[in-house]
Amino acid sequence: MSAQFYVSPEQMMKDRADFARKGIARGKSVVVMSYADGIALVAENVSPTLHKIGEIYDRIGFAAVGKYNEFESLRQAGVRYADVRGYSYDRADVSARGLASVYAQSLGTVFTTEQKPFEVELAVAEVSDAQIHDHIFRINFDGSISEESGYLCMGGQAENVAAKLAELWVPETDIAQALAWAVTALQSPHQAPVADAERTESNAVPLGLGAATLEVAVLERNAKEIRGTHRTFRRLSAADVATFLPSNRQD
């Protein structure tokens, strides 16, 4: 029997974290953003069926970056958790905070005990009656959790995207503006830095980001009044998305 080499706990955690970060950095970015009438979840995604964004419960949405099979299993577990909770207590008793903390526990356990950590980063968003009460949680591969105010960016180019959004985002905007910002921010890493000088608001469009490569869903604050349903999650069709793209906007 061969003796194992000693690896210090610090080194082991660092290796695992580096491994997970590398996996996540390969993925495309996702933006979650609160606006006047709800929360928008926008992902760069070439597949129309392998979703990165999903519905968890009445007021709760899910977005993820990283390995599909890993975040899909987390999404399904989240739906099961929420449905069991809502069925055994009441629909009102399912909260994003509760879900985010079980996600954090679950990811934390996988990070320390499994063969390899999950290469995913999750966002859990809960729309509420007013924008200031909206919650957006970020859960990392190691189980660390944080609440973001207003908007959140994840994925390979998260820093660039977040920097762009930090310039643009203000509260109380309409959906068209929010989606336009989200798309602009997602596009920012695609544009070569040299182009920056010549870029103006009107031509600041698409190297490759069109309705076909975007996955967009919203949690509608007033779904009950507008659509008569307790489920606020609505996926936008490619045609809907096209009308919101910065290139097609009139202003």
Partner: peptide, 23 residues
């Protein structure tokens, strides 16, 4: 009831009835 479902159960079934019956 408050515990998080096993991640291995994912993809096993799309039925809530089946999940609740088992767990």
């Amino acid at each position: 009831r408050d515990s998080f479902p096993s991640l291995n159960a994912a993809g096993a079934s799309s039925s809530f009835l089946e999940f609740v019956t088992q767990n």
